[in-house]
Design a protein around this nucleic acid. Structure first.
Length: 918
RNA sequence: GCGCUCAUAGCUCAGUGGUAGAGCGUUUGCAUGACACGCAAAAGGUCCGAGGUUCGAUCCCUCGUGGGCGCACCA
């Protein structure tokens, strides 16, 4: 017996073996438990869903901690006989993952995402995400998390994508999602908008400048950003401010920098008379507050900063094209030269930064999609306490009610205050992101009139493809319908890349220009897609007459209007106008005769450009100046929807290029994982979730959004209890982060000391909502504890009485006391778990096992086991065994591996995982 | 500015209205037939400061000091 019970337990060997045994049993899946009669069909449910880790790399100790908390409660409830479901999954984490891949790309290949193009970049991101996913799954399993892998989900998988689409449509239909021009937080570094919650404030030292627009202007204003002042339209003062009362309502013409302005004096409550001069220059385009003041007073706006954080043309010749900081210096110098500067003083100010990229947020007016949190709508089917079905409510109200009505219990309760406070200050949620990785916004704009269609299915897709590169292209020679040159090497590679992209698009037909460069491109695509090619000369490039093959610079000299005159024919060429007409007619003909299939059209730069002029209803000027040149071998998708444009009846659409805020899909996590929008059995059975264990740092980003989405879409709260755990920090209280290099891989800890030890170390010192400082010494301590459990069990095996087990064992008074004592502890532990005091529960089991069971009970039993009284030997042993097995049950949620391993040595036919606690 | 939170043994942290606990560390014995990742014993704390409530406070209240964090403003 001692052969198979060495003095040391080896977690590294045992843990993976035990995990796969559990997996094979299928008992992580509640359906299986019911089938095998382990769980009653009528039993209560207990469900939770794993907060999906971001596929940005690997898990850290914080995840291990989070997983442990959940695993404890799920194992406990499973052993209590409930139908327990814990669903695993991962989050695509749009901005975080994209940023990660971009930074790798930049480091390793010195490229940005635009160098690769949308499709290729996304392929790389997916590849990366998949790798991360695999690592993450391995890690989660190593920790011992008893997740039902058969239900694994991903926020970007097919089911979740379709759920997102339907959610968007429904919320749009309810008027909860709208498109509007508003001031948004623009991150110039990652070139996207971000939500208010993704902005962090950093205190910095700044200068407050006080100046006048010109000498005759009656009021001096204060600002920290003089460069934005060229976008001013008004000066706002407090209505009670006596100094300025006489000016309110008046308009002044000013000459400022090199522009003429009209500045109106307005009154606004929000202005603090004590700050600066008590007068503020109102810059609606670059400040949210100013935007609101402008709205109230019907003032116009001038955008003077662009998406690159550079000054626009509207900023005037002195500043145009300059970075904002440069522009600031220029402004300050100018103000001083003109003697308009009255004061400069140092002040502290908060700089807004994008949480992910660190870019300085630039508030800009942009046309974006928003969720309206204050809009009244009818919640048709409500199970939310305090809001009845059919009642008019708002998203804010739902979020408030869910918690104040007690349906969502927040632990620890101090976070309720934080939650309510956030809701009070909540503004509309900007959900569109200018990122590539994520759920594409399910909105199509009519190519012709631009009107959006939301509730739509794609019935077929057309792709316009310009041929790959030729030597003419490379050497900047005009290459029209009169020249027939082949692809060069680069061009072939480009065509192959395009073919790769189109391969997955179920292409039914390729229609190509007959010119060699197009033909070659089409053939490469045909090979990859298996589609047939038909040729149409009408799709040829614009005929360039006398300049065919001539270098672009030379053309500019010879025929200056050649590239810019839409109707020009000066080089005996075909005009752009003529080309467009020709190609458009051809395109229309093909469109009509190849309905319902996905088609690739291979043509040329000028031809596609002028075709798009017709399709998009552009002016000649827009076509030639504003529209970008068509890149080689990059498919331009055009969607044909199941319905025509409701505004103009046209059939061709392009999808909104933006993607959704990643929290939009994570907000649906509790029900999208259960199969929503289908009315699945899972959804009916397991929603709302019983429990949820996120970190308190995502209370707004995620938890509030889950309550919002769940309320809006299914009229339910997402979960009953939300338990906020703290952040795991290093020994010195620092957050773990890659940049600090203090990261610890939970796998390393599990390999070194065992997952059981790691779990105990994480959970034992952690009261709800408080941060945990991680100390390897503690892990070692609990590794020792695992060994203690092991050896106490070993003692029992070695000291089992030799005689035959008697029919009946009569416990002594002492035995009864011991058993009563144990049951007392066990019920206390159960109570702690049920009250989510996992730290108390784990410490109590620890203390009992070591210092009561091992140190006292076993020690005291030794003399009885060695005594002469056979019956008493058995009585003593039987008590020990009962307490041991009971303790293993009690310890199992915390230390699942070692307890399972030992339990099966005593009860080979059983599995502790599904043994009953009571 | 508003709010939250923490301050307990050398370190990291639990905890309680009746003068305190764990892990690691330290000291002293022990190779005691389960376990040296152990056993037995021990040292070590005016439970941040001041005041209040109470028969009694480390725990409740007020103020203060010093950390951490959130939110808002930031012209």
């Amino acid at each position: 017996m001692t052969d198979e019970f060495p003095t040391r337990y080896d977690p590294q060997e045992a843990e993976p073996r035990i995990y796969s045994q559990w997996e094979k049993s299928g008992y992580f899946n509640p359906d299986r438990c019911v089938e095998d009669g382990i769980t009653s069909k009528e039993a209560d449910y207990f469900s939770l869903v794993l907060p999906p880790p971001n596929v940005t790399g690997t898990l850290h100790l914080g995840h291990a901690f989070e997983d442990t908390v959940q695993d404890i409660i799920i194992r406990y409830n499973r052993m209590r006989g409930k139908r327990t479901l814990w669903i695993p999954g991962t989050d695509h984490a749009a901005i975080a993952t994209q940023a990660k891949v971009e930074s790798v790309l930049n480091k390793e290949e010195k490229k940005n995402r635009h160098d690769l193009g949308r499709e290729e970049f996304l392929r790389r991101v997916r590849e990366f995400a998949e790798k991360s996913h695999d690592t993450i799954v391995k890690q989660v399993k190593r920790i011992g998390a008893s997740l039902d892998w058969s239900r694994e989900a991903y926020t970007l998988d097919e089911k979740r994508s379709s759920a997102v689409k339907i959610a968007f449509e429904r919320m749009y239909g309810l008027g909860l999602i709208y498109r509007g021009a508003r001031i948004v937080n623009w991150d110039p570094r990652s070139q996207t908008t971000v939500s208010d919650d993704e902005v962090v404030h950093e205190e910095t030292n700044g200068l407050l400048y006080t100046f006048r627009y010109d000498k005759d202007f009656p009021i001096a204003i204060s600002t920290t950003r003089p460069e934005t002042k060229v976008g001013d339209v008004a000066v706002a003062v407090n209505p009670k401010d006596e100094r300025y009362k006489e000016y309110v309502g008046k308009e002044y013409k000013v000459k400022f920098v090199d522009k003429e302005f009209v500045i109106k004096i307005v009154a606004d409550e929000n202005i603090d008379p004590a700050f600066g001069t008590g007068a503020v220059g109102v810059t609606p385009a670059h400040s949210l507050i100013d935007w609101e003041i402008a709205e109230k007073n019907s003032l116009p706006y001038t955008q003077v900063i662009d998406e690159q954080a550079r000054m626009t043309e509207a900023a005037g010749p002195l500043l145009v094209g300059k970075k904002t900081l440069e522009a600031r210096e220029i402004m300050v110098t100018w103000l001083k030269q003109e003697s308009l500067m009255e004061k400069e003083e140092e002040i502290k100010l908060n700089l807004s930064k994008a949480e992910r990229s660190g870019g300085t947020i630039e508030p800009l007016p942009k046309l974006q999609w928003f969720i309206d949190v204050g809009k009244p709508f009818i919640l048709s089917d409500s199970k939310i306490e305090g809001i009845s079905s059919g009642e008019t409510t708002t998203l804010k109200e739902i979020m408030k009610q869910a918690v104040s009505g007690g349906q969502v219990k927040i632990i620890p309760d101090r976070f309720e205050k934080v939650y309510f406070h956030w809701i009070e200050n909540l503004r509309d949620w900007c959900i569109s992101r200018q990122l590539w990785f994520g759920h594409r916004i399910p909105v199509w704009y009519c190519l012709k009139c631009g009107v959006p269609t939301v509730n739509a299915q794609i019935s077929s897709k057309w792709f316009l493809v310009r041929h790959g590169e030729t030597d003419d292209n490379k050497e900047h020679r005009a290459s029209g319908g009169g020249r027939d040159v082949p692809l060069n090497e680069v061009g072939v590679a480009q065509a192959e890349k395009a073919a790769e992209i189109l391969k997955g698009q179920n292409i039914g037909l390729i229609i190509s220009s007959h010119l060699t460069r197009a033909k070659q491109t089409a053939e490469i695509i045909a090979k990859a897609t298996g589609a047939e090619i038909i040729y149409d000369e009408e799709l040829r490039e614009r005929y360039m007459g006398k300049v065919e093959g001539v270098h672009h610079d030379e053309i500019k000299e010879l025929y200056p209007s050649f590239w810019i005159d839409y109707h020009g024919k000066s080089a005996e060429n075909e005009s752009y106008h003529e080309t467009g007409e020709r190609v458009h007619v051809a395109f229309k003909k093909h469109r009509d005769s190849h309905d319902g299939m996905n088609v690739v059209v291979v043509s040329h730069g000028g031809a596609i450009r002028t075709l798009l002029k017709h399709l998009k209803n552009l002016t000649p000027e827009e076509t030639l100046t504003k529209m970008h040149l068509i890149p080689n071998a990059t498919p331009i998708p055009i969607d044909i929807l199941s319905q025509d444009c409701t505004n103009c009846g046209e059939k061709l659409f392009e999808q909104d290029p933006d993607t959704l805020d990643t929290w939009f899909s994570s907000g649906m996590w509790t029900f999208s994982t259960l199969g929503w929008p289908e009315k699945t059995k899972d959804l009916e059975t397991y929603h709302p979730n019983s429990f949820m264990a996120p970190g308190y740092e995502i209370i707004f980003m995620w938890v509030a959004r889950m309550i919002l989405m769940s309320g809006a879409l299914i009229g339910e709260v997402p979960f009953r209890t939300v338990y906020f755990h703290g952040i795991v920090r290093d020994k010195n209280g620092q957050k773990f982060s890659k940049s600090k290099g203090n990261g610890i891989d939970p796998i390393d800890m599990a390999e070194k000391y065992g997952a059981d030890a790691l779990r105990m170390a994480l959970i034992a010192g952690a009261s709800p909502g408080n941060d945990v400082k991680f100390d390897e010494d503690r892990v070692r301590g609990y590794r020792n504890f695992a060994t203690k459990i092991w050896n106490a069990s070993r003692f029992l095996v070695m000291n089992k009485p030799d005689s035959a087990r008697p029919e009946t064992i009569t416990p002594t008074k002492k035995d009864k006391e011991i058993l009563d004592g144990f049951l007392q502890i066990k019920s206390e532990v159960a109570k702690h778990i049920e009250e989510f005091d996992f730290h108390l529960a784990s410490e109590k089991t620890y203390h009992y096992f070591w210092h009561t069971f091992a140190d006292k009970i076993i020690e005291e039993a030794k003399s009885r086991l060695k005594g002469d009284d056979m019956a008493d030997q058995w009585a003593a042993y039987d008590t020990l065994e009962q307490v041991l097995l009971g303790s293993l049950i009690m310890l199992h949620p915390f230390m699942p591996f070692v307890t399972e391993e030992i339990y099966q040595k005593f009860r080979p036919e059983k599995m502790l995982l599904v043994e009953r606690w009571d």
